[in-house]
Design a protein around this nucleic acid. Structure first.
Lengths: 161, 161
DNA sequence: CTTGAACCTACAGTCGCTGTAGCTCCCATA
DNA sequence: TATGGGAGCTACAGCGACTGTAGGTTCAAG
């Protein structure tokens, strides 16, 4: 009876627990808050963040969607939809479809690239740099067999740990 | 006879020509210079950059390698090799091989993702958000069929124009 | 001589974080 | 009750590879 606004049975997690339970880093959670993807949580008397179950679920959703490669603004749209559960899911569908299209395009480009790199290596005679097939292909546009020359996306080398 | 240092027959391009001829943007060329990937070119009396054939070739190499998805530091290594044409091309080979490995890993991850997204869409009943398979899969880890759960790389949505 | 395109520098913004510095807070043990 | 250390806090810089903008200068054609 002493508490009214917040549900007494709701668990209250500090940020580190949220991080551990979702596999997100603490900084990332704060970053999501800073860009408005997560609402500002309650604070302790000592100014530390305290989260409830709903926030945990929301972050879980975000994490999962990020693992699927959705960009944050798509995730934002998806989250907006989960807040209106009675709405039609056509839009959600559309977002997923768009993402799938993007993934397929990326796969296509990478496969073309894979072929070219493979050919580069196969035809390398392992002599000097001057004769190196790989380097020659890069030096001279004519020597390469690419059908099209759209650049492959600028993707950072980043091992997912 | 009036000119000594620079070869009289060498063409001299302003930055815009270099950009047009290689398909690079002017700012990108200046950026490459700022990070030391391109040497500082000669300047006109009015402080404008002037390039020769060698710079054009170097930039062409960089552009081409970028189109192949090589990161700039790999390109830097490759360029260092072209400056020592008598050296063995084993290292160059190694760089290409590493990149190919990276490309293949990325393809694998994206294909797994493609499967999951496809399944999401297939099983969506096109009702309300509350029943939406796609959103449910994202909400609930148990509902998704991923064999592994390494995150797919964080790749920005960036159409290559 | 004028116009306007091309050039110049310097810096902020993109995406999605990650890392650091320099604090404060909280809780378990002595 | 003191203390130690892990966890938390803010604020900001940095990553990769650019891209865009503001506000100025230079150049070449007419």
């Amino acid at each position: 009876m002493t508490e009214a606004a917040t549900n007494t049975t709701t668990p209250r997690y500090p940020i580190g627990d949220l991080a551990r339970q979702t596999g997100t880093k603490v900084q990332t959670i704060r970053y999501y808050e800073s860009i408005g993807l997560l609402p500002q949580p309650a604070r302790t008397a000592g100014n530390q963040r305290v989260y409830g179950q709903d926030q945990l679920d929301r972050l879980g959703f975000i994490k999962h969607a990020r693992d699927f490669g959705f960009p944050l603004d798509a995730i934002r749209e998806l989250l907006d939809m989960t807040d209106r559960p009675a709405a039609s899911c056509v839009e959600a569908d559309e977002i997923v479809r768009r993402h799938l299209g993007e993934v397929r395009r990326r796969i296509g480009r990478l496969q073309a690239l894979e072929g070219e790199l493979g050919r580069m290596l196969e035809s390398c005679s392992h002599g000097t740099v001057a004769d190196c097939r790989a380097i020659n292909v890069l030096s001279d546009h004519e020597k390469c067999c690419a059908t099209s020359h759209e650049p492959v996306e600028t993707i950072p080398y980043r091992a997912p740990d």
